[in-house]
Amino acid sequence: MKRALVLLLLVSLTVGVFAGGQQEQPAEAAPAAAEGPWVPTRPITIITHVGPGGGMDVATRLFVDIAREFTDATFVVENITGGGTINASRAVLDRPADGYTIFGMAMSNVNSVVANEFDRGTFIDGYHWIAKIQRDPAAVIIRKSDRDAGMDFDGIIEDARRRGGRQVWAVPVLGGNKHFEALMIWQATGVEATATPFESGPLGAAAVLGGAADVQMGNPFNAAGRDLWVAAIASPERMDGFEDSPTFAELGFPELNDEHIWRGFAVKQGTPRAMIEWFQGIVSQVHQHPRWRAFNAENAIMPRAVFDDDFRKIVDSTMEKTEFWLRELGMLD
């Protein structure tokens, strides 16, 4: 009898644990309120494809920290890396479209879908593109010591021409955005150079600092706080903190002036419209927040708040550009 009682107790305890665990799983689709504002009742998970410390990770963590001023909702940032950004995307699509899972993504995610020939019906059309939040301009970076010795963008191009393709440009990976940007610059200026992958922005900066690479194709952020100088920047006008760095337009290449990588948020198709509007409201508020502005300014990133179809158009043009350059490089069948 006693034994049976103990057993019963244990069983109920175990079941209790299951039930407890159940609550934190977003299995039950929250009934979408047809009218009225959306009110989150559970923590909202933002999944990102980069590890802690990556560009979108830092941006997302700061974003949710600021967002706490505008909402009582709790946000959890989850890093799901690997699989060429697809692991994260898949995780988002595997979870229910109840608004409690958001994909914090960047341009490289769209590149990866094209480069690895993943199903666009799933990995692009499967998303509602909520908001683009950042525009991170392309920047050509060299050593400060070279600048002080009289080197500038024209000097780089001249040097490239003289060395007949031996000038080394550091990019994170071949067949990625920074490689494309470098190719566009070479095409526009009519020179050849060698793009060498250095895995990440900081490591690329280190390669230029140490002299292993001559030029870094990066973002202004890579130069900030280091003995590096931005020789050209893709921006409508000169940027705060980088006043001595000319824009591509000033240098005579207006066609390069819009090259940038973007970051933004997306949710699975079928997510309640009320949730999307709620989140876009938060994006608009954070967009105006001084802390968000200051963080972006320090890293020469332009904060953005581009929603829905306008964002989707940017995604489409990213796909087009990626496909074009991958074909040019012979990396796509």
């Binding site: 071949l174 150079a193 793009a195 040019e328 490089l329 012979g330 069948d333």
Partner: peptide, 8 residues
Amino acid sequence: FPTPRFAA
């Protein structure tokens, strides 16, 4: 494996 057309 595909052989991309990278310079040098």
